[in-house]
Design a protein around this nucleic acid. Structure first.
Lengths: 201, 201
DNA sequence: TGCCTGAATAAATTCTTTATTGTTCACAAA
DNA sequence: TTTGTGAACAATAAAGAATTTATTCAGGCA
């Protein structure tokens, strides 16, 4: 395979391809988007796409990585946001998780096909993202320990527990189990329970 | 339709049909089990099945109801089991939920087809079961209030929250996300968090 | 009359064939 | 050499034909 180099030009092309692909995948889904269509959107031949991406799956993977990176960026924003107590930060963190998932699937339901493919074929990407998320949440809990708000023995383990408890808010599978209003109500109650469970007393 | 009466004889036949069906659905799944096969197992014609059940879906629904009734029976057992603190009862309750789901799908993975069909076509059955489960758990929390162990404003709402937090242990969808050992670890940590969150202080 | 069946029919499933799509490669333009 | 393309090939999906299955019903047997 002739692999395109790492010149900024090549990166620019990759970026353009991903932008076109994002629109296609969002509107028509992973399966019904053809390489020819993506190529046409970028004014190039389908064959030429292969100079920038291994194959169609690699385009999907790159798109997923981009999206998860954006999600992680928003989580980091919560972490560095000044003037929040650990409790507020924890709540904002989980809310950011929920909001991101909800928005992602509300206007673009067909993006689920991409998620399904990545979960099946590239579990490593999901796993790494989960690890990052857990690690970020652990820092929030550790901050709470430091400030005297929380009393958490193992921040990393507790972060995992909190993520499991709030799974329903972050896994697309559940988005149609409840209405938005019900989610809001459940979210409020869940955060109350979790905070009470972590609090120093 | 000639509807079979409610004689104990008809009930006996229905019972035999369900026993045969359970074996078939467990081994081959809902979709690949034919009415003819079920009928043969019961030494009758396929046509005769329709004197006892509306259609194939109704057999599946009856089987699901039977299974959920058994699950509810086990939950009630936990509730009346003597000599437990509210905390222990809560833990036993959630563990019973987990164990039932796990056992159900461990030796009979193809039973998932039935669950999928019921979730899609007979959401009412699932909804009623969820309601019963929530109600039973609410009594455990109320007991905890009475004994001074818990401090729960709205036992019904908190029951819902606890169920949501432990969804991962009870929804077949997640059974392959973690190993049994990981589930045990998560379970332990989750119960710790929840109990701390409900405790009177 | 009550209880059950085999044959008939319509709906769903599987199998087969055809068309589309993903991917490679030899080669052309710059 | 670098950047790209159209044509060829293999894999996948779509469409259509053949088969199986769910369901009904007229009638047989106690």
């Amino acid at each position: 395979m002739i692999k395109a180099g790492h010149s900024s030009l090549a990166e620019e092309v990759r970026e353009r391809v991903l932008i076109a692909t994002r629109a296609r995948f969002g509107q028509y889904g992973y399966n019904k988007t053809t390489m020819a269509e993506i190529a046409k959107d970028c004014d190039m031949s389908a064959a030429n796409l292969y100079r920038f991406f291994e194959d169609k799956q690699a385009i999907g993977a790159a798109l997923a990585c981009q999206t998860l990176a954006e999600k992680e960026r928003r989580l980091r924003d919560v972490i560095v946001q000044p003037g929040l107590s650990a409790t507020q930060r924890l709540e904002a963190f989980v809310r950011a998780l929920f909001r991101f998932t909800y928005e992602q699937f509300h206007d673009k339901p067909r993006i689920g096909e991409l998620v399904e493919m990545i979960s099946r074929e590239r579990a490593d990407i999901i796993g790494q993202h989960k690890e990052v998320t857990r690690s970020l949440l652990a820092t929030v809990l550790a901050q709470g320990n430091a400030s005297g708000e929380f009393d958490v023995r193992d921040p990393s383990a507790s972060a995992e527990t909190v993520i499991v408890a709030t799974t329903i808010f972050c896994v697309p599978y559940f988005l149609h189990w409840y209405t938005r209003e019900q989610f809001e109500q459940l979210f409020k109650q869940m955060m109350e329970l979790i905070v009470r469970g972590l609090e120093k007393r």
